[in-house]
Design a protein around this nucleic acid. Sequence first.
DNA 1: ACCTGAACACCGTTCAAGT
DNA 2: ACCTGAACACCGTTCAAGT
Lengths: 206, 206
Amino acid sequence: MATALKIDLRARKTPVQERAAVTVEAVNEATVQVLLTAGLERMTTTRVAARAGVSVGTLYQYYPNKQALLFAVLEQHLMVLATAVEQACEQARGLTVRGMTEALVRAFIDAKMRNTEVSMSLYAAAAAVDSAALVQRMSRRCQKAVTTMLTTAPDGRFEELDFKVMMLFATMAGTTRMVLEAGASAKMVRMLRAELLAMCLAYLGA
Amino acid sequence: MATALKIDLRARKTPVQERAAVTVEAVNEATVQVLLTAGLERMTTTRVAARAGVSVGTLYQYYPNKQALLFAVLEQHLMVLATAVEQACEQARGLTVRGMTEALVRAFIDAKMRNTEVSMSLYAAAAAVDSAALVQRMSRRCQKAVTTMLTTAPDGRFEELDFKVMMLFATMAGTTRMVLEAGASAKMVRMLRAELLAMCLAYLGA
DNA sequence: ACCTGAACACCGTTCAAGT
DNA sequence: ACCTGAACACCGTTCAAGT
């Protein structure tokens, strides 16, 4: 990796008037749409602006560069995923390890498979953006929720729980991604649900 | 994903004279170097050509576009990985499921961790190139080797073996990537070896 | 405060000219 | 057969001018 210059990914300024808020939301939405219909390759800032119904200059008022744009939509979607996982973890407190794992796997797969096209577009976006830090931040949020949940399990206590949860999370992410990239047919998704659950349960010794 | 235009990724022409072969190899090597030192962001074809000691025009004699260049180095490295996995699988034939799994996990992690910097650079390259097909081709090669190996195990036979092997492979890839992106400290790599093996063994019921 | 769009710098790619 | 590098098209980004 090495020297990759740090690029500012923060939003440039926050909209204060109502119409500006509308503009920013339109730009975000347009980014996802262009990503979906044209692919990362042909997603240009001018095209995004046009799709949003504004000029390029406007886009650059709110985002310092193209990467910041991708970063924003990626963040938005990871946030949804993290929240879904957190909620599932909270609701599953006090259950058995098996019950917890079922809830976790279901929540994760459901969130990722809700819109497969968008999920796949975002893999490309993530790679174009030096998203490692963002992904790690979101992962940690999820992992913390999972760890907290598992410590409330009446059956089973675990050594090196933090690392084990990391392994679980990477496994869910890795296998789900593979199924997505293999086409995500209904049959495969069904098998993924069953096998991923089986793997996680076996790993946790439940 | 949708409409992403198919881009020609094949090499443009094969070198016939000795000096041309040298040129192509220099370009390939320069691509990895620039990727490593400058990052995907600032890897320009002119810079790669300069580093290889040729002009841009020469580069474009052998590769139709920038993506083809990235594709070539990615393919080269995936080939090494696939070969390592295949060899390990062949040597492990006739062992117990446990012995086989140990050999597989060791071969995979060793190959990926041999040069962590290069491995990480290639994640970026893979994302910039629509590498899904290539990765799948290489994955299938590995999975075939693993499947063949596992059918020779004296203990244990498996249902849905193809899908199970796919799960194993995605798990190895996913967890290894996570450790790489988290910094791949010696301690983490050690824990990865232990935990990944444990997970695979548990999943296979060994 | 917010928006516009022509202008600029830079990069991917080509091609006529060379050995 | 192989190489060169100026030229072209296109895209990211800016900024003076507008409401």
